[in-house]
Amino acid sequence: MIRDITLGQYYPGNSVIHRLDARTKIIATLLYIIELFIVNNFWGFLIAGAALAAVIALSRVPARFIFRGLTAVFLIIAFTVILNLFMVDGRVLWQWKFLKITYEGIWRAAFMGVRLVLLIIGTSMMTLTTKPVELTDGLEKLMSPLNKIGVPSHEIALMMTIALRFIPTLMEETDKIIKAQQARGADFESGNLFQRAAKLIPILIPLFISSFRIAQELALAMEARCYHGGKGRTRMNEIHFHRGDAIAAVLMVIYLAVIIASRFITFNPF
């Protein structure tokens, strides 16, 4: 299941969205998240969904690929929806002992579900269309004004690059350790929750040790390739704002206005 998470993965392409500056996409995504919380009715979500669909169409990332990312976080969505369904007070529709479903509950559950789905797809669109290096470069540049107050923006960006790079490596390592422990008779499947959690220790400790070893080897390899901090470093692909970014900025402002306006739509067929 871990391998199915498309969240944070990059889908190679050369679409309009792919070519946007990483900074534009980071700001747009942040705005999009905030706007999802400004929305207070389904009309707003309809607009947000339409905008997202337009971005997906422009990016040419196959929908199948995007929705595969959702399956991995399906549990979280289901949990939120069910919690909302049963926990909201109001006009009771159905009741069994302490469990009850209300009109307001259904409405809230659907509302939160749609919001979460849009949120997850929206943020994964950023990572799907932006190379990890561009993303971290963009973050580094966006954070660079904070250098003055002592925020190490280059180091933070490098840490993110390395973290993204080593997710698959550490997953392979975990897999290896699990298999090695199973081969020696370790049992990860039986027992209650606490017993199972305790059984993870023989996986976590070797994983911890091997990640230190990997870090040490990587540090050596980086030093051998003349890494000496962000000072005097250049970039192969310097990020630049283009005309597309200006258009995106204008669209973002229009979208923000529309979303705020959608709060005042009172027509409600439900």
Partner: peptide, 30 residues
């Protein structure tokens, strides 16, 4: 220098970005 473990000496997720890591450190123009 090229090391033994191929996994632990690649810094960037994307092949070409990793190859660029050394020259970038040397401050060579893009």
């Amino acid at each position: 220098m090229v090391f033994q473990n191929p996994d632990n000496q690649i810094v960037s997720s994307i092949v070409e970005d990793d190859v660029a890591f050394g020259p970038e450190n040397l401050g060579i123009p893009p």
